[in-house]
Write a protein that binds this DNA or RNA. Structure first.
Lengths: 174, 174
DNA sequence: ATCTACTAGTAGACTTGTCAACCGCATCAG
DNA sequence: CTGATGCGGTTGACAAGTCTACTAGTAGAT
């Protein structure tokens, strides 16, 4: 469900091919949703089947022909409906916390490795989100992308929270 | 993978039935991993098949007989191995942020509804985590549950970050 | 001359997770 | 006496997501 609505959302901004959708997922939506190539194409065919978007084949010379997908009125309605539905409480799956939960079974060296790796991952991820945020702000100042940027700011807040938490832990582990 | 390791982790603390595992998932692990009943039982059978735990049937009077699962040495080794493996960067799926990303298509009323609901959900979830934390600390003071509690503290930090972010948004939306 | 990467998509197997129903037996409240 | 709830578990159908490999042409680098 969510994937199909996110695809509709992207198509509501501009018509696109599956290939381009994949790139958008990897580039701009990636920090809160990832998508497999195969999954995107499959979802597109069901969207077309349900009349939420239409596909038109476009010939290109030198390149393989592509199928540009365009959202329909019906699709826009479905998107809006989804935007308004109660976002069910997130399932919040976190395999790292799973490891922490049983971390008492690790020795000191392994413990530090566990948390250090996490800290480094969080730091570099934070840097990349910050970069994305700055780049987006530079590219289109003003309020145009307000909500897109808000999702980045959300990620940044959470990464900082994670880093604070890691710092607490490392202080206490000494 | 993760589910099977989390089950092994719980079994490493005490032998248990599938039924009890389900209760533990709902009660103590729920804030970072949820598990469906059917999935737990299926995973248990494959764990047994792989020799990572063994099941012994225990008769009870008045109640249906149960299958207590006990972790094996092989299982403990598999658990440790998992604890040490590089925790692949979380997939971080967040359907709420998906809605925010396209929220420019909502009117003011709908926007406030979206964020208000989120805030209320975060607040009540925060309260429940805080409660769990206090209850656990009261039940077993000292450092016994340090890492279990750390996962709760992680959740609390993140919820506070979420609330701070929501406050920013609401200030800016005015 | 070969190797890599990009464009654009297809296909199949597989794993994971979710939903809903069903089994028997017990206990307790209305 | 009936119905709800707890215990302990099983089954089947599905939805969602992942992984690998394949097609087929272009362009640029080694």
């Amino acid at each position: 469900m969510t994937l199909s609505r996110l695809i509709l959302g992207l198509l509501s901004l501009a018509p696109m091919t599956g290939y381009e959708l994949k790139k958008h997922f990897d580039a701009t939506v990636n920090h809160f949703w990832s998508a497999d190539k195969a999954q995107i194409y499959r979802t597109l065919t069901t969207l077309v089947k349900d009349g939420l978007c239409i596909a038109e084949t476009v010939q290109q010379d030198g390149l393989p022909s592509k199928q540009v997908h365009r959202i329909t009125e019906h699709g826009r309605a479905a998107l809006l409906e989804w935007l308004e539905t109660d976002p069910a409480p997130d399932a919040e799956r976190n395999a790292f916390l799973g490891r922490v939960f049983f971390a008492a079974q690790l020795d000191e060296k392994q413990l530090h490795k566990l948390f250090d790796r996490r800290r480094e991952a969080a730091l570099s991820y934070l840097a990349s989100l910050q970069e994305q945020l700055d780049a987006s702000r530079a590219a289109s100042p003003g309020e145009a992308l307000y909500f897109q940027l808000a999702t980045l700011r959300n990620g940044i807040r959470h990464l900082k929270a994670e880093l604070d938490w890691l710092q607490d832990i490392e202080k206490e582990l000494v």
